[in-house]
Amino acid sequence: MKQLFLGLAVLLLASTITSCVVLSPKKYKALLARQDSLNLGLSESKLSGENLDATIRKLRKDTANLHSALAELQSNYAEVDGNYNKLRSNSSTQISKLAGDLKAREQRLKEVEEILRKRDQATNKLKETLQNALFGFTKSGLSVDVKNGKVYVSLMDKLLFPSGSIVIDEKGKQALSQLAIVLKEQPEINIAVEGHTDTQKIINLGQIKDNWDLSVLRSTSVVRFLTDVEKIESVRMTATGKGEFQPLADNTNADSRSKNRRIEIVLSPKLDELYDLINK
């Protein structure tokens, strides 16, 4: 553009010079004014061109920056989108896994509840059977109860042993024989025999030193009778002595002390199925 202005000025000047050899002062001044105007236009044109070039360079730089920013944003978007898809995929997998675990636990809980229901049903049936079998001994201090899913056959010491003795008397043997009939028909039942005493101190009983000895020896006497005489499998039997430390009454009078001197035969259903299920 600036070259065009320059060419026009030269052409105009040459035309003026060739067409008018002699110029009047007025025309000469007009020509000079015209020349000044063209020079000013040329200067402005140069300045405008420079400004235009600067603007173009700035626009190109801004465009490059925008392309760079756009590329960075696209990269960030791709990363975020990938993370989102990965998270959604993982979440779906975890949700599916948790749902599967929950379903398995619910199934296991139902199985445990069914096993416990069967246990309680069997326990109550066993209690009823024992009460019927041992009914004739209830007035002699025998009772049958259910606690914590187990059947407790409690026999006061006067039903089994003479005072201060560890030898089972005939009436006690009759009661244990009736009990053994039921236990032989229940091979899935574990049998624990517990000896209990009152707080009275042992005096002059020879080998029996204290209530610990008395409670243990009485429980082992019962176990030996059930295994040696009644032929109940020894593997089902456990003998323990509790001494005076699990009383039923407060030991303040003869009647309460009599309640504490007892043999408890604890019958527990085998729960191998339940243990296996819990430990899966």
Rank of each mutant, 00 (worst) to 15 (best):
A175M: 01
T197C: 15
K61H: 14
S92Q: 04
F245A: 14
K103S: 15
S154P: 08
D157A: 04
S45Q: 11
T18D: 11
I202C: 04
I56W: 13
A180C: 09
D36T: 02
Q174D: 14
L32W: 10
N279C: 08
I181S: 10
E50I: 09
N39M: 05
A254Y: 15
P247L: 01
I263F: 01
D101H: 13
S177L: 08
G100L: 02
L116F: 03
G136V: 13
F137Y: 15
V146Y: 14
A69R: 12
N279M: 08
S177Y: 10
I115V: 12
L277R: 05
S234Y: 05
L160E: 06
K86D: 00
K231W: 02
G195V: 02
T16P: 00
G241A: 05
F135E: 04
K86E: 00
E128T: 15
Q74D: 11
L217Q: 13
E194Q: 12
L217N: 11
A192L: 08
I17L: 15
G195I: 03
E233C: 06
M1T: 04
E264G: 02
D276P: 02
R57W: 04
L183F: 04
I189A: 01
S258F: 11
I115T: 11
A192D: 08
R262N: 09
V112F: 12
S221Q: 14
L214M: 15
Q174L: 14
S165A: 13
R105M: 11
S143Q: 13
E233W: 06
D36L: 07
Q207Y: 08
L12R: 09
Q121S: 12
L159N: 07
Y77V: 03
V10D: 02
G7H: 13
R236W: 07
I17F: 13
F5A: 13
E244S: 15
T138P: 08
I202H: 00
K58G: 03
E50Y: 10
D228E: 09
I56E: 15
E114F: 08
A9N: 04
S215F: 02
K173N: 01
A33Q: 11
N132T: 13
V182H: 03
S24D: 13
L52I: 02
T129L: 03
K110Y: 11
K118H: 14
L6M: 15
P247K: 01
E113M: 10
